[in-house]
Design a protein around this nucleic acid. Structure first.
Lengths: 234, 234
DNA sequence: TTGATGATAAACAGCATTGTTGATTGATGG
DNA sequence: CCATCAATCAACAATGCTGTTTATCATCAA
């Protein structure tokens, strides 16, 4: 970052009445209410009230309730993205995947600290018509693809299926265990339980392969199909 | 009031008195609307309209909108339970776990054929204060516990975490891929993809253990902790 | 100062919903 | 055959939200 550290707030020409700040306040309030009542329960009245802003003002920033909701969702997504991947801009190809383990852990921690918010965001993503336009989902899936292509990964991972499973598991486990209404200590332990089970699953799976020879065969056959389809598509 | 002969023929033939059937019709309608609009969007008016029943009638069967929603949820849960575990009553201890593979597959198929309904039910389960009171969740978790104790399973499975992951993965994958608005053929293929990835994960995990010796050590240490806690609790 | 922009306040029509009440109808037992 | 009672229905009042509009105030830029 450039010499921005020395800049005193007086240097920057203050905005007239700081619409930016107002907008941010509205979005923050919307976030909080979204986490409390879910997307359906979000009313412009309540948002304005919580943001200490007139209802008309909210309508000036976001023409319709639906647009406010959409803006709030991507706002949350950005928050999540920063928490997991750091402050780097979206398109920076470097450091996309420092370590898969770290990404998984930071995601689990974020989810555990914001269970309701994570839940709501996830369901908006699922309901969205174009998931690919979501900042976090994009970067997350890219990073998982990179891992799957690396030599550290088992061969044959179905990245789409796997990304969905990991994402929703991580985000909904805190919801299931009621992470809100838990002590910080409990939450730490619950994150650890989840991470360990995920790690165990990643390293060992759940079934002893030697006990399921026929399934193993089936699996290899399916992988053969996939490879054949891929080469046929060329 | 004068004799009814002059009354305009807009009178709807009154439903035959059969409370059971009426109740079922209301619940079925609620199911359909639940799948379409989600729990928040469920209005008694619409339910009554779809069930071809007066709104007041619905209020007689379910005192409040909230109760209707709750009843509908367990109705769905029962449906799911039957689809996955068969018609046997809940408490029958026999045949609880014919084969874990079959359970997983039937669940995936149900989810793929009823994506919206599965999503809503799952959401209600997550929001519920006592998941243990849900018919399907109960039986599902029991069956998974049984498997984890069997000699076919890898040791050290955290059943709670794992049950949540498998359940939500199976139910939300169809939502993610927009199983509605897909052809039957597509849906079949998508079920297969999911099942294969789940199977692959169960048999092999995602990471090559030989590449992560330190993680393997960490995992064994964690398992040691758990065992120590368990023996300390005695 | 002036003009433009952001923010506030209040009021309005339209709509959908909730929950309640009293009337009506059909089944059923005596 | 009728009296009773529960199931059903139509209508009502109350509420809250949406989106729009109008008038007014505050703050900064030029």
């Amino acid at each position: 970052m450039p010499d921005g550290t020395t800049i005193i707030p007086t240097r920057r020409p203050r905005r007239r009445q700081d619409p930016e700040r107002t907008r941010a306040a509205i979005l923050e309030a919307a976030c909080a209410l979204l986490a409390k009542d879910g997307p359906e329960g979000l009313s412009v009245s309540q948002v304005a009230q919580l943001a200490k802003v007139n209802r008309g003002t909210a309508y000036q920033h976001f023409q319709t309730r639906e647009q406010l909701l959409e803006a709030t969702t991507t706002w949350v997504s950005e928050k999540l993205r920063r928490a997991v991947f750091g402050e780097a801009p979206v398109n920076s190809d470097v450091a996309t995947l420092g370590d898969a383990q770290g990404v998984a852990l930071r995601m689990a921690e974020f989810a555990m600290e914001n269970p309701a918010l994570g839940r709501v965001w996830l369901f908006e993503l699922l309901a969205s018509s174009r998931p690919a336009s979501d900042p976090f989902w994009n970067q997350f899936k890219t990073s998982l693809e990179k891992f799957a292509r690396s030599d550290q990964a088992q061969p044959g991972i179905d990245v789409d299926v796997h990304a969905v499973m990991v994402l929703i598991g991580t985000l909904l486990w805190p919801v299931f265990v009621r992470a809100d209404s838990r002590s910080a200590k409990d939450r730490r332990q619950l994150v650890e339980r989840f991470s360990n089970e995920m790690l165990r699953l990643s390293l060992q799976g759940t079934m002893r392969p030697e006990k399921f020879p026929e399934l193993d065969a089936h699996l290899r056959a399916a992988r053969g199909d996939k490879a054949r389809r891929a080469s046929a598509a060329k």
